[in-house]
Simulated assay, not measured.
Amino acid sequence: MSTDAKVTAAVEIDRQVALDEGDIEALPTLVDLERWVGVVLAAHDEARTELTVRFVERDESQALNRDYRGKDKPTNVLSFPFEAPPGIELPLLGDLVICHEVVVQEAGDQHKATADHYAHLVMHGCLHLLGYDHIEEEEADAMEALERELLARFAIADPYRPPA
């Protein structure tokens, strides 16, 4: 499948950078985020098209992961779906919180380009916002298959295949 604009949905992203230091030039641009999120939303005919993507330090990631998931360690991406009050329709999908340091470390450990790992995690997080999960093996298989398909549109290799 092509990566042209026809396969992406229009999205509005609030890109937040809450980093004290580090190589913030390695962060995805707003254009990158719009392309990756747009492909996910277009694959779902999704009407909710607004979200926040926040890049954070390890301490913020760890605090959120501890408080919301009961895991006292930083993680690569956290997804917080927006739940509108009954009777209110808003285009908000939710928030993604991404720990830059964890992403860079994982990309190096897994011998992946940082940009490719970011693309995977942004799409993975968006799928969580849309209700996908990977707790049960069948759900994980379906989610991973979709991630592979979407990433292939950007010529990004299967993130689940072990390195050669």
Rank of each mutant, 00 (worst) to 15 (best):
E50S: 09
D116K: 01
P28S: 07
E101D: 15
H124R: 02
V77A: 00
Q62C: 04
A43P: 00
G70R: 01
A5M: 11
S2K: 12
G38H: 02
V103W: 00
K112W: 11
T75Q: 01
A10K: 13
D20L: 10
E147L: 15
A63L: 11
G125C: 07
D133K: 13
D72W: 07
E57W: 08
L90C: 06
R66F: 12
I135F: 10
Q110V: 05
P74G: 06
A47S: 13
E147C: 03
I24L: 09
H44A: 05
P163H: 11
S2H: 06
A119L: 04
L30H: 13
Y118N: 09
K73Q: 15
F154Q: 01
L30Y: 03
R69C: 12
G108D: 05
E34L: 09
F80E: 06
P85Q: 10
N76Y: 03
D158S: 10
P162R: 12
R15T: 06
T3M: 13
A140L: 15
L30M: 02
W36V: 04
F55G: 04
G131R: 04
E34R: 14
L19N: 00
I13N: 08
P28K: 07
L27M: 10
L27V: 11
E136L: 12
G87Q: 10
L121Y: 04
C126Y: 10
E144Q: 14
E25P: 00
A5W: 04
A157D: 12
E12M: 06
L146C: 08
H124S: 01
L121A: 02
V77K: 01
C99Y: 00
D116L: 07
V11K: 06
V104F: 07
G108M: 07
D72F: 03
M143F: 11
C99A: 03
E144H: 14
H117P: 04
V77G: 09
P85G: 03
V56N: 09
A47M: 15
I156E: 02
L90A: 14
K73E: 14
E57R: 08
V40Y: 03
L30C: 11
K112A: 07
H128M: 02
L129G: 07
R58H: 13
L51H: 05
D4Y: 03
C126K: 00
D4C: 07
V102I: 14
K71T: 11
A107K: 03
D23V: 08
H100V: 07
K73T: 04
D32F: 05
E25D: 15
L33Q: 05
V56W: 07
L92P: 00
P159S: 05
I98D: 04
K73F: 13
E46T: 06
L90Q: 14
T114Q: 02
E138G: 04
E12G: 02
T75P: 06
E60K: 12
C126S: 10
T75N: 05
L151H: 09
E60C: 04
H111Q: 14
R35D: 03
L151G: 08
G22F: 01
L151S: 02
R161D: 11
D158R: 08
V97M: 01
T52N: 02
G38L: 07
E144N: 15
M1S: 15
A26F: 08
A155T: 15
E138T: 15
H117R: 15
F55R: 00
A155K: 13
